[in-house]
Design a binder for these strands. Structure first.
Lengths: 330, 330
DNA sequence: GGCTGGATTTGGAACGATCCAATATCTATG
DNA sequence: CATAGATATTGGATCGTTCCAAATCCAGCC
């Protein structure tokens, strides 16, 4: 700490300057700052943390960072949090519960003061137990894990209403048989996204065809072939997410049956690409940027003010209709 | 540090156990581990760093994390680095040099022991100077910044050869006039990706039409309209990246002129989606996962062994031909 | 000039690990 | 059984901040 010597003050004073305390005289502050600049001083956070234990770090663990929906969430959250002076550590668990537990452990060691997690499926008790033990403010977002989900507040979108809207819309457009495509069976989120669709079909006494599987573009493409071959009566689909929907559309295009009027599709998430595909993809829009901001606010409220958020929150969603379901060319 | 007391040893011994030293007796180690488990002890990295100054943290700053190409790189790099026991802090500079400098500063404070950066365009001296001052091993990847680019080793792909291959391929397929679409003018990476295209056209004495702009799907879509209206003679395009190419294809599809034989397209990066679009997109494939692994290896070599990598490295690229340029339906 | 009270500044303990030299404990060997 | 040499363990200093109580400064006032 030559800074102190160089500026002719004590290290305590330097510390005060560092913390931006207004109780140091302006001249003193200037002198210290000058000394710091001259010396090329860099603040050592490790030391500061050691003493004050608060690192200004927030951990974010995402199950699939390659999925644009999550990427968008991660980047938006990071920016919202950065605006409050916190840094974010982003990590990708790649849907692997063990890796997830390790990542969370590493983040705890690094002294994160809060966690946001979109959990991987599978055994998650390791992950959540260590967070609970440390008493870290932790938010589950976008999907609920398979275990210990009750330990921490959860926030997501009102998917059930969304898929109901989508299904009704497809029927109104003239579809007769609406399938559900994508989503791993047994997952809470699949149940939710399916439930609205099922409710509507039940009410109208229609047959339910659901094709479950990985929520990827590739799976959607595959299912296009399956639908054409095995379910010719199906003339519309609500997809688990936009990736599946885009894959499905590509599959139909490849088979020479472009989507729009003959076959109608609605996706989920309204990722950026939905508005730029051909045909443009109708989708249940989840305002993920807004959601990220809310999440940041709730998290900071918990971290700073100690206000634990309500245990469950559902953001409303909005159906955006485009050519893939209306057939209208814009 | 009740662990020491509880296990009946000194704190030094506990420290040795923590570091996995093999010079503690097996029984002692077990005793200590038992004590740690009972007490629910968590390692405090801040304290360790303070003394030993090496955090096991690598910083990664990306100019556009929403771009799937970069997302893929970030996640692959993170995993490669995690395999060596380092944690990665990922941040998105969102193409903003000031934010970038702030992020880098924050990472330095957090004690990262190395940086990987795909720089935002614009004034980058703040960013690089602070890294140089600290003497942090830093790798520039995928694109070169506008300033101080000489300070640190740079690694990327051999784009020039890639675009030459793409252009020759299009001409062989029967195209007569090949445009270049996308890429901000004046950027090093645009120059590179363009140069191969230009060289081939020059050799054949063909006219050069280049449409520059943001490298997004939306821009590609826009340019489809422009090409159709203003450059009817153009019958093929090499695109700056896959996003532009996908947008271009969507734009042509919207105009009722699906891409394949009438108009041929090759993209750049070969992102996952390229193989799943309709028509499937030909692309200059950059093996980004491999690149990420190499980057991790070079970085660790520098961090651990002190071997500074060669100042410039170009990974070879490969042209993957698909329906968007051959017209063949698979 | 002495006093008062607010504004500044300061010394030194603390944070929880690592590191190093020194000490204690084993093990094999003559 | 003594002892060298290897193997295990330990005490205490140390890293660079923050925190707190105490000390110092200074202007204004009687």
């Amino acid at each position: 700490m030559d800074v102190a010597a160089r500026a002719g003050v004590s290290k305590s004073t330097v510390s005060l300057v560092l913390q931006g305390s207004k109780q140091v005289r302006a001249e003193t502050r200037t002198a210290v700052e000058k000394a710091m600049a001259e010396i090329g001083y860099v603040y050592n956070r490790a030391a500061a943390n050691l003493r004050s234990s608060s690192v200004g770090l927030v951990g974010l663990v995402i199950n699939d960072l390659r999925n644009p929906f999550f990427t968008e969430f991660a980047t938006s959250l990071q920016m919202a949090i950065a605006a409050e002076g916190y840094a974010t550590v982003i990590a990708n668990s790649d849907e692997d519960p063990e890796l997830q537990a390790k990542l969370v452990g590493s983040m705890i060691e690094h002294g994160v003061s809060a966690m946001v997690i979109s959990p991987a499926y599978g055994a998650a008790s390791d992950t959540f137990d260590q967070l609970a033990r440390r008493g870290l403010p932790t938010l589950q977002v976008l999907r609920q894990g398979d275990e210990r989900t009750d330990l921490f507040p959860f926030a997501s979108f009102d998917y059930a209403t969304g898929s109901a809207k989508a299904t009704r819309h497809l029927l109104q457009q003239g579809a007769r048989n609406v399938a559900f495509v994508g989503g791993l069976p047994g997952r809470a989120i699949t149940r939710e996204r399916k439930s609205g669709w099922r409710d509507v079909l039940k009410k109208d006494g229609l047959e339910e065809v659901a094709l479950h599987g990985k929520s990827s573009r590739a799976f959607g493409m595959e299912m296009a072939a399956t639908l054409i071959a095995d379910h010719p009566e199906i003339d519309a689909a609500v997809c688990f997410n936009d990736l599946v929907a885009l894959g499905l559309m590509a599959g139909f295009a490849r088979a020479g049956r472009p989507v729009g009027t003959g076959f109608r599709v609605v996706g989920f998430d309204d990722i950026e690409e939905a508005a730029q595909s051909w045909p443009q993809l109708s989708s249940v829009s989840c305002d993920i940027a807004q959601f990220a901001q809310d999440t940041a606010a709730r998290l900071l409220g918990w971290m700073v003010e100690g206000e634990r958020p309500e245990p469950e929150l559902r953001m409303p969603v909005r159906l955006v209709t485009r050519a893939s379901s209306t057939g209208e060319t814009t």
